[in-house]
C-alpha cells in the first residue's frame, strides 16, 4: 500500500546479471593487490620472509640435519613451501578483519554487488600472493641447487595442489578473522597455532628422529602429508597416496570451516 504512493524515480534492475559477480570479484581482487603498491612492507612480508627461511634453514641446519646444505635443501624446500602457505592463508583473515573493523565491509555491502564478491575478491587476491611466494621459493631454491625431478609438469602439479589446499585452509583464517576483535589478533593466532603445527611435522626434520608419541601425530599432521605430496611432485618419490590424502584433508577442512566461517560472517555483519 505504501509502495503505490512512493515515488519510484528509477526502475533499476531487480537482480544482478550472471557475470556481474565475477566482475565484482576481479575488481575487489584488484583492490587488494593495489594495496601492496602503497604498503611495500606487505611485499617484503611475502618475499623476504620465505627467502630468509630458505637461506637460514639450508645453511644453518642443513649440515647438522642432512649432512650437507644441498642434501637438506632437497628435503626441506617442499616443507618450507608448505609452512609458508599456511602462514600466507592468515593474510585473508587479517585483511577481512581489517575490513570488518574499519567499516569497509559495510560500505561494500551497501553497494549493489554480488554478496559473495567481497570475500571471493579477497581470497582471489591472496591466491595470487600465495602463487608469487611459491614461485619465489622455488626460484631461490633452484639458484641454490634445488633440482626438479619431474620438470614443469611436476611443478605445475605441486602449484595446483598447494593452491587447492590453501583455498580450503583459508576458511580457517576467514573464521578467525570473523571471530576476533582486531586484526593483530589474527596474527597472534597464526603465530600460536601455525608455528607448532608446522614444526610438529616432517617439514624440516625427518620423522624418525622424534620421540614415538610425537611421531604418531607427525604422521597424520596435514603439514607432513602435504610436504610429502610436494616432495613426490618436485623431487620424486611416492605421489598418489600423499596427494589423495592432501586433497582429503583439504576437503575435510573446507567442509568444517567454510560453513562455520560463513555463519560467523553473517552473524558479525
Amino acid at each position: 500500500m505504501t509502495a503505490a504512493t512512493l515515488s519510484a524515480p528509477l526502475a533499476p534492475p531487480r537482480r544482478l546479471g550472471p557475470t556481474a559477480g565475477v566482475r565484482h570479484t576481479l575488481t575487489l581482487a584488484w583492490r587488494s593487490l593495489v594495496q601492496i603498491k602503497h604498503n611495500p612492507m606487505e611485499l617484503l612480508d611475502l618475499s623476504i620472509q620465505p627467502v630468509m627461511f630458505v637461506l637460514l634453514f639450508t645453511y644453518v641446519f642443513g649440515g647438522a640435519i642432512a649432512g650437507s646444505p644441498g642434501e637438506y635443501l632437497t628435503f626441506a624446500l617442499p616443507g618450507i613451501i608448505v609452512q609458508n602457505a599456511f602462514f600466507a592463508t592468515m593474510t585473508t583473515g587479517f585483511g577481512l578483519n581489517n575490513d570488518l573493523t574499519k567499516g569497509v565491509f559495510d560500505r561494500l555491502r551497501s553497494l549493489p554487488i554480488a554478496r559473495w564478491a567481497p570475500l571471493a575478491g579477497r581470497i582471489l587476491a591472496d591466491t595470487v600472493k600465495q602463487a608469487w611466494s611459491v614461485a619465489l621459493l622455488v626460484g631461490v631454491g633452484m639458484i641454490l641447487g634445488f633440482r626438479l625431478a619431474d620438470g614443469v609438469l611436476g611443478l605445475l602439479g605441486a602449484f595446483a595442489l598447494l593452491l587447492a589446499f590453501s583455498l580450503a585452509a583459508s576458511w580457517i583464517s576467514v573464521l578467525v578473522g570473523v571471530l576476533v576483535g582486531e586484526p593483530e589478533k589474527v596474527q597472534i593466532f597464526g603465530f600460536m597455532v601455525i608455528f607448532p603445527l608446522t614444526f610438529t611435522s616432517n617439514a624440516f626434520v625427518p620423522t624418525e628422529t622424534m620421540p614415538g608419541w610425537l611421531q604418531a601425530w607427525v604422521e597424520v599432521n596435514p603439514v607432513t602429508i602435504l610436504a610429502d605430496a610436494l616432495r613426490g611432485l618436485l623431487v620424486g618419490g611416492p605421489v598418489a597416496a600423499p596427494v589423495v590424502q592432501s586433497l582429503l584433508w583439504a576437503g575435510v577442512l573446507a567442509a568444517i570451516f567454510a560453513p562455520l566461517a560463513v555463519r560467523g560472517l553473517k552473524r558479525r555483519v
Binding site: 533499476p12 534492475p13 575490513d99 574499519k102 567499516g103 569497509v104 560500505r107 551497501s110 549493489p112
Partner: peptide
C-alpha cells in the same frame, strides 16, 4: 538489490579503504 542501486551510505561504520 534495487534499494542498493538508489542509496549512498556514509558514516562511522561505512568507510573507505
Amino acid at each position: 538489490h534495487r534499494v542498493r542501486q538508489l542509496i549512498g551510505l556514509t558514516g562511522q561504520y561505512a568507510s573507505v579503504d
